[in-house]
Design a protein around this nucleic acid. Sequence first.
DNA 1: GATTTTTTTGGCAGCGCTACCAATTTGCTG
DNA 2: CAGCAAATTGGTAGCGCTGCCAAAAAAATC
Lengths: 332, 332
Amino acid sequence: MEFKHQATVTLAEVAEAAGVGESTVSRVLRNHGSFSGRTRERVMAAVERLGYVPNRIAGTLASTGSRLVAFVIPSLSNIVFPDVLRGASAVLEENRYQAVFSVTDYDPGQEEALAAAMLAWRPAAVMLAGYEHTEGTVKMLRASGCRVVELLDLDGDALDIAVGFSNRAAGRESATFLLERGYRRIGYVGHDLNRDTRAGKRFSSFCATLAARDAPLVGREIVAGASSVENGRLGLQRLLARISDLDAVYFSNDDMALGGYFHCLAEGIAVPSKLAIFGYNGLDIGRAMPQPLSTIRTPRVATGKIAAQLVVANAPPQTVDLGFELIEGATA
Amino acid sequence: MEFKHQATVTLAEVAEAAGVGESTVSRVLRNHGSFSGRTRERVMAAVERLGYVPNRIAGTLASTGSRLVAFVIPSLSNIVFPDVLRGASAVLEENRYQAVFSVTDYDPGQEEALAAAMLAWRPAAVMLAGYEHTEGTVKMLRASGCRVVELLDLDGDALDIAVGFSNRAAGRESATFLLERGYRRIGYVGHDLNRDTRAGKRFSSFCATLAARDAPLVGREIVAGASSVENGRLGLQRLLARISDLDAVYFSNDDMALGGYFHCLAEGIAVPSKLAIFGYNGLDIGRAMPQPLSTIRTPRVATGKIAAQLVVANAPPQTVDLGFELIEGATA
DNA sequence: GATTTTTTTGGCAGCGCTACCAATTTGCTG
DNA sequence: CAGCAAATTGGTAGCGCTGCCAAAAAAATC
């Protein structure tokens, strides 16, 4: 029960204390190979007595595969990524895998640097957002031999495993929904599209669908900085200042849409009769609004979960489409 | 179907290819010790040519200190923790440290298990939320010899480093603010207090302050499950169904408060004239509401940032109070 | 009781790297 | 150019663990 105030109890010391060989201790601790019940007890007693904590660094070096899973994500501000991590971490913890992460801030160059740093830990898998990577990143990942999982995007070619849904389809369905509801003068409020390429895909496919149905996008407002409620409110305000006769606005995501909704509330703009609002992500918050938000619900947690399960199972290369769900809501 | 790591290039192979010794390559790569410019070039050329990626597992085992920092956090749904991670990850990346994390789901037993798993990676530091840990966790951490950082709580005794602010003070100031505004019939809507002990500290100190000023809490509603906008809305609805003449409600955080605000909007309850609303966290979303949310803004990102800086600098044990800011807003 | 089979066990060579030390080369001084 | 200090460089012993193999012990068989 007593832990020694030493950071340095080693397997060899446990073996010594238990009066058995090192490999026997290793076998007992990993519950791998065979050993007698009596040996097990003696080893466990010594472990307990010395407060031994196995050294996974050494263990990983000595054995073939690691149990690290590396996440290289664009952001932690955008709820999407914490949600993915959440879905994945439960599965990983159950299977005694360890999650490691770093944040690229939507910068492909940074992604490359961080992916390289990650590979130095020899992870079992690297999880990345989407398909847009630098040539260098792709080359490194290919050469590394470790599993690669691309998340939240299916519009492109997968390196290995891909889990998510089509952003293009999401953009298309959003446009179709608005058109079918009779909206014709449609605008867009979004954040930086060059950085968030998935939002860019939604937008371009949204526009293409509108154009194909003879109701091309009337106007757009791209705010600087990350998506946020404040930026959504600001963006809508600016857009309406330029083009006052819109009948619907498509937002780059729910945070932005909520900001737009707040703007309407504050300005007394009736939603959806005067102006319809449509979001993306299907956050919990949208359901609690006085008028439920019309949006597309994406399987963020499930994406993380499935991705982790495939890695743990060392599944063959594949692309898993988890789809999404259009929520009619009351704002469009 | 099995997929194996392919054979990777080792430092020895680079040394061979560059025609130098292993230790020379190691020195060049870590930019540590001395070597000539010509040697540097030859080594770098070989690294480039072979696509060498150093093995940090081996490096860490061979050297004394690791550059891993372990986060053991209660949740990823509560924005607080992604914010802390965000603040920390920027600093860690700059200093070539690697963040590792796992999620306890507010379960102290799970925290102990995950902390043990973390220590197996011999991190430079373990970052935990608050002061409430099992005896086993504390013993382990003490024995591990690695730095321990306790985050987001200062009401208790620190093990080593603590960074955050006082939740008790936050609860007290919230109460004082409401009382000074003249509210006397005050209620509370919160999520599970036994699990989220920091919310519990705010609440108990809030209540004590009210009681000391002869305006004890009139009623409370604790919803099952995690804090969320939906639960806030539901909680307020239930509380008002029981006690209709409240003049102010304190929420366990901004998400819950926003839900309450939505309930008022939907039910036509005037805020703050009929019912005042007060939150906690100071999320960006509160500023964008038609009426800015009255709340307390906490330094979440800064907490992560400072914590990481102290670890990187291997600072002596200390407690850093980052304070918080009361936002008057327009809802109370 | 002797022999074969099965189960347990310990020894030890690495895993890929860093730290230390000694050897070598280079640069300077007088 | 000897003589010494400084800058480079390579060799090698681990870091703590796992995987392999052979030895020892226990169980089963005739």
